[in-house]
Computed example of a mutant assay.
Amino acid sequence: MPISRSAKVQRTQWTAQFLVASELVRNGYVVSFTMGNTPLADLMVGSRDATYRFWVDVKGVGSNSAWLIRRRQAVPNLFYILVRVGETRTADAFFVLNHPQVNELIAAQDATDKSKGSRDIGGAFSWKAALPFRDKWPILPGWPS
């Protein structure tokens, strides 16, 4: 039975969230899902000893398409983990950025779009723009060395 586009998007997003949570737990963090109760982020994350606490907004895509991320004022301790959900676990890719880095990528894309006369879609950047941030987990507070 074919799956609808909206069902595929939802499945991809949930897969991405669980993949990120498992990577964080595997590396010593405590993770709670916000379950849609906060528009800020998908995960609340902290160290076991409560030394570090931060938010993670997860964005998942199933193909090398643009990252659609809404523009917002900088939020302290907010990180984005973008996940390219592959057909297999070994094909998954993680891109880890802080909020200012995301805002810079959105601003650069906005400038490019404006120069081309494209309409404003509310915030996004290209797949390739995230490539320098692949597996940059150490940007997270308290990431193990």
Score class of each variant (00 low, 15 high):
K116I: 04
F95P: 01
N103T: 06
P132G: 12
P100S: 05
I121L: 04
G86S: 11
I121S: 02
P132C: 13
G142N: 08
K128D: 15
P100M: 05
A108P: 00
P132W: 09
V102G: 01
P100R: 05
I139L: 15
I121K: 03
D110G: 03
V96M: 03
W137C: 11
Q101M: 04
A108E: 03
K114R: 12
P100Y: 04
A91L: 13
L97E: 00
D135F: 07
F125T: 01
P100I: 07
N98T: 13
R84P: 01
E104G: 08
I106F: 01
A108F: 01
A111Q: 10
G117I: 10
R84L: 15
L131F: 13
R119N: 07
E87T: 13
P138Q: 14
V85P: 01
Y80S: 06
A107L: 10
K116P: 00
L97W: 00
D92F: 13
Q101W: 01
I81L: 09
A129D: 03
E104M: 10
H99T: 07
S115D: 08
K116Q: 11
A93E: 14
D92T: 13
L140T: 15
G86A: 11
D135E: 12
S118L: 14
L140E: 12
L105T: 02
I81Y: 05
Y80G: 10
D113N: 11
L140Y: 14
A130R: 02
A124P: 00
A111V: 08
K114I: 08
T112K: 12
A107T: 10
A108D: 02
K136M: 13
D92S: 12
A130W: 02
E104Y: 05
V83S: 03
A124H: 11
I121R: 04
I139N: 05
